[in-house]
Structure formats: C-alpha cells, structure tokens
Amino acid sequence: MKLGVFSVLFAQKSLEETLDYIKSKGLDAIEIGTGGYPGNAHCDPDALLADESKLQAFKDAVESRGITISALSCHGNPLHPQKDIASADDAVIRKTIQLASKLGVTVVNTFSGCPGDHEGAKYPNWPIAPWPNDFQDILKWQWEEKIIPYWTEIGKLAAENNVKIGLELHGGFSVHSPATLLRLREAAGDAIGANLDPSHMWWQGIDPVQAIHILGRAGAIHHFHAKDTSIDPINVNHHGVTDMQSYSLMLDRAWQFRTVGYGHDLKTWADIISALRLVGYDYVVSIEHEDGLMSVDEGFTKAVQNLQQILIREPLGEMWWV
C-alpha cells in the first residue's frame, strides 16, 4: 500500500510547493482536485487538455518527485435538479475522465449526486425512510429515471478510457452505503466502485471493516480515504446521527470529523488496513483532513504519523510456515 493525501488541503500552495511538502512528509501519492466542491487549484482540466506543453509540465512536476497520482477528484452533483448546476458538474466529470486517461491515472473520484423528487424540482431530495410511501415512490423514480441511466453512461465512458469511478459514500447523496453502491454497480457496470471513506460509515452506524469486506469481496473498492469520526455519546441522543447542525458547532454536534486516531484508536485503524489487504486492496490510502480541532498542518501531520505505524507496505510473500 501507499500513503497519500487529498491535496485540496493545500489549495493555498502551488502544485510544486504542495508536492515538495508531501514528499518531505514521506508520502508516496497525491489525490488532486479538478473541480466541483474540491476546486481545481492544482489541476485545471480545461488548461491541461488544451495545451500539451502544460500537460507535460504537470506530469513532470509529479513524476520528477517520485510521486503517484492516486486519483483525480471532482466531487459534485451531476444529478442536481437545477440543470445549470448538473450540467457544470457533469462537464467536469467528463473532462476529468479524459484528463485521467491522458495522464495514466486509473481512478476518478466524485459523488453519485442526488436528484430532486420530480422533473420540475428545484432542490435535491434524499429519502431516508420507507414510510410514508411517498418516499418509496420518490426513490423508485430517482433510481430508474436519473441515477441508473446517468451512471450507466458515465461508467461506459470511464471504461472506454481505462478509468474507474470511485463514488464516495456520503450522506445526502443517492449512493451513501455499501448496498446503494452495489445496487448501482450491478446496473451500471464494474467501472463504478467506491472511494471508501470510513468517516462516513461510522456516523451512519456502519462498521468500516464490514463495509470493506462487503465491497472488497465484490471487487468494488477503487480508492480509499483516511478520515476519522468521533460520536458524542450525549449529543447523539439529542440530535441523532442525521444531525443538521453546522459542522462549526462542535460542542453541540452529535458527531464530528477527526484526523486519523482521534476518533478511533490505532487498533481499529490497523483492523481497517488489514481488512483492505485481506480483500486485495493494495492501492493508496489517501489522507483527508476535516478536523475542526486541529490546524491543517497539525491534523495532516498526526494522520501521517499514525498511519505510518500501521500501513502494510510490502507485497505479500509466500507463507513459509504453511
């Protein structure tokens, strides 16, 4: 396995400064934003696709430092009921797939998106209960008319470009759990898989180790984010796991994102890393920092220190004791 980072943390730095910084921390890989919510501070698909010299300079900057690009990431909502929002996010996904193909990057990370509840809707609608039955009707319409058709098309485009799509299982979007990911993968093809982030499993009440087993046995883990979550035992009984309070209200929230090791101990994280190896995932573990109690530098540095202790780096050898 390789240790990497989602470079959106360092949007205020140049690409070269970011690469030098993460190299100094002993990292092997970088995940780079190309638009959507992550922005494109380090990688503008329009500029790189239009100019071969800029594309080559970009490749040289990364390769000369011995760093791998684990994924290009363009998280957005290509299924948004407002057509201008959906079209913009869809365009970024398509350009990112094209750019990934040119760069030899095998994974494009994004969100599944979430449609509205009918053709004239203005905002996304995320049903989370089977009753009243209206929610089932909305969910059926979303999957049959929007989610499956769109991702079947994108899955084919990705496969044609030798790229895999890593959908981050995130609350508020249609694909947010192992079951919803596997449902879409069955319908849209094997190019569709997960960018699995355990932080979003924990707050939904899903054990990340079991999620790894469920998805890994299906060959459906394309990328992995390293981010932690802590759940407040008192506040969760007040607000529930679907707490809608701002992330900034950390004292009152039911749960909050933490850097690796500050929500769950390193034994839990070692179990996660071991489960990844067990199901055959030997790709990049990409650090994502969204810890409101730590600066970017401190949170990132502690995540690196903690993960370096437990990451399984060497390839499997023969079982000499068998």
Rank of each mutant, 00 (worst) to 15 (best):
S70R: 01
A91T: 14
L79K: 11
L103C: 08
S87V: 05
R65G: 07
K59P: 05
P115H: 13
K95M: 13
V92N: 09
K95D: 11
R65Q: 04
Q82V: 12
A57P: 05
T106N: 13
S112R: 09
K59D: 01
V107P: 04
D90V: 01
T106Q: 15
F111V: 11
S70F: 04
F58K: 03
S112I: 02
K95F: 05
P81A: 04
A71E: 08
L99A: 03
P78D: 07
A100T: 06
P81N: 09
E63Y: 08
K59A: 00
V62A: 08
Q98R: 15
G66E: 02
R65S: 03
G76P: 03
L103D: 08
D84I: 10
Q82H: 12
K102V: 08
D84F: 04
A71H: 00
D90K: 14
V105H: 10
C74E: 02
N109K: 08
H80C: 07
N77P: 05
T96P: 08
F58W: 13
F111D: 04
S70G: 10
A71C: 07
H75N: 10
P78G: 11
L103K: 08
G104S: 12
I67P: 01
D60M: 09
I67T: 03
D90Q: 13
L72R: 00
K59G: 01
P78N: 06
D90R: 14
A91R: 15
Q56H: 06
S112G: 12
G66S: 06
V108D: 09
K102H: 11
C74I: 01
D90A: 13
